[in-house]
C-alpha cells in the first residue's frame, strides 16, 4: 500500500443474514466485492440510488457494521490498522480517527443537551481531555472553526435552524481530531442556499485541517462540485470510479450516463427525455445474474445476462465494470 492512500479496501463484502429461522442461510449482500482506494487528503464521492449499498460501505469503513469478506486497511502515517480484525484498544483508537456526519441534523442532536455538551461528549467518552478547562478550550476552538460562537454553545438544539444544526453535527464529528470523515447525505435535508454554505464549510475544513472525506450522496451535481474523485455504486457493486472531471466529462458506464441524464436541467428549453432509465433497482435479496445492471441497461446483450463484468483498470485512472464500455464509447464518438 502506498503512503498516500488512507483507506484501502480489497474485495470488501458486507452481508446481512436475513430470514428468521435458525438454519436460515439467506444472506443479503449489501456490499459485494468492492475494491477502493481513498487517497489521503481527498474529497472522495460515493454515489448511487437508494439500495446501492453506499451507506453500508461507508459504515463498514468506519467499522460500524461487520465486514464479512475481503480486507480493509487504514493508514494515516501514525498507525496502520487492519479494519477487518480491529478490536479492543485499537478499535477505540480508530474511533477517534474516523468519524461520521449524519444526514438529518434534527435527529442527530439530543434535544436535552446544550450545544457545548453535545460537542464535548466525544471528548469525555473517549477520555481525550484531562480537565474541564481543556475540554472547554477544545470545544471553543472547534466551534469557532464551524462558525459557532460562545453564545450558541449555551443554547439547546431547538433554537437553531437546519444549517446551524448541521454545523453543530460537524463540530461534534471534528472534536476528537479525526483524519477520516464519512459524511452520509450530510446536505440532503438542507435548503439550497444553506446547502451551499455547509458544502463550502466542509471543503474549507478539509483543506485547513488536511482531512480525508468520504462524501456519500445521491445528488450528482453536489458531488461534482465538491469531490475530487467519484465512485458509482449499483446493487452493492462498484461500477465506475474516476477523478471527478474525467467522470463528468466522459462517463463510461451506461448506469452513470443514465444517472447524469436524469438530473433535471436548469434550462427550461431542455426538456429532453433521452436515456431515461426504465424500472427500478432490483431488490438486493433477489439479485439478477450476470451484470447486475442488465435488467435496466439499454445496451445489454446475452453476455451481460450470464457473466458478471469485473472492474477494469485501463491504466488512465478511470475504472469501469462493463463488458461493452469500449464499443459503446466508439459508438458515441462515431
Amino acid at each position: 500500500m502506498s503512503d498516500d492512500i488512507l483507506i484501502s479496501a480489497r474485495d470488501l463484502s458486507v452481508g446481512f443474514r436475513i430470514g428468521s429461522g435458525f438454519f436460515s442461510k439467506a444472506v443479503l449482500k449489501a456490499v459485494d466485492h468492492v475494491d477502493l482506494d481513498i487517497a489521503k487528503g481527498s474529497f472522495f464521492g460515493l454515489v448511487g440510488e437508494s439500495g446501492s449499498g453506499k451507506t453500508t460501505l461507508g459504515r463498514a469503513l468506519l467499522k460500524a457494521v461487520p465486514i464479512t469478506g475481503g480486507t480493509a486497511r487504514y493508514n494515516d502515517g501514525e498507525v496502520d490498522l487492519d479494519l477487518t480484525t480491529l478490536s479492543g484498544p485499537a478499535l477505540k483508537d480508530y474511533r477517534k480517527r474516523a468519524q461520521l456526519i449524519f444526514q438529518d441534523p434534527y435527529a442527530a442532536l439530543s434535544p436535552r443537551m446544550t450545544v457545548r455538551d453535545i460537542i464535548a461528549e466525544p471528548l469525555e467518552v473517549m477520555g481525550l481531555t484531562k480537565s474541564r478547562e481543556e475540554t472547554d478550550a477544545r470545544v471553543r476552538e472547534i466551534a469557532a472553526k464551524c462558525r459557532l460562537n460562545l453564545e450558541h454553545l449555551r443554547r439547546f438544539p431547538h433554537a437553531f435552524s437546519g444549517g446551524q444544526r448541521q454545523r453543530i453535527s460537524i463540530a461534534r464529528a471534528l472534536v476528537s481530531g479525526p483524519q477520516f470523515i464519512v459524511a452520509d447525505e450530510s446536505v440532503a435535508a438542507l435548503d439550497v442556499s444553506i446547502q451551499a454554505d455547509v458544502l463550502n464549510l466542509l471543503k474549507q475544513i478539509q483543506r485547513d485541517m488536511g482531512l480525508t472525506f468520504l462524501f456519500i450522496s445521491h445528488d450528482l451535481s453536489v458531488v461534482a462540485h465538491t469531490c475530487d474523485h467519484v465512485a458509482v455504486m449499483y446493487l452493492g457493486r462498484l461500477v465506475e470510479s474516476a477523478p471527478t472531471r474525467t467522470l463528468f466529462a466522459a462517463p463510461r458506464h451506461p448506469y452513470t450516463r443514465a444517472l447524469f441524464s436524469a438530473i433535471p436541467s436548469l434550462d427550461p428549453d431542455d426538456r429532453g427525455r433521452a436515456q431515461k432509465l426504465i424500472g427500478e433497482i432490483p431488490s438486493p435479496t433477489n439479485q439478477p445474474p450476470g451484470c447486475k445492471f442488465h435488467t435496466r441497461c439499454p445496451h445489454a446483450i446475452d453476455r451481460c445476462k450470464a457473466e458478471e463484468p469485473v472492474l477494469e483498470h485501463p491504466g488512465d485512472g478511470h475504472e469501469v465494470a462493463c463488458h461493452r464500455w469500449r464499443e459503446l464509447l466508439d459508438e458515441m464518438v462515431a
Binding site: 435552524s161 444549517g163 446551524q164 439550497v192 442556499s193 444553506i194 446547502q195 451551499a196 454554505d197 458544502l199 463550502n200 445528488d219 450528482l220 451535481s221 453536489v222 461534482a224 462540485h225 471527478t244 472531471r245 463528468f248 447524469f260 438530473i263 436548469l266
Partner: peptide, 22 residues
C-alpha cells in the same frame, strides 16, 4: 441568490455562493 447557490453541472469551477445569513 437561490440560483447562485445551486451547483451547476456545466460549470464545475463556479463557486457555490450561499445566500448570506439565515
Amino acid at each position: 441568490g437561490l440560483l447562485a447557490a445551486l451547483p451547476k453541472l456545466d460549470d464545475l469551477e463556479a463557486p457555490l455562493t450561499p445566500v448570506a445569513g439565515d
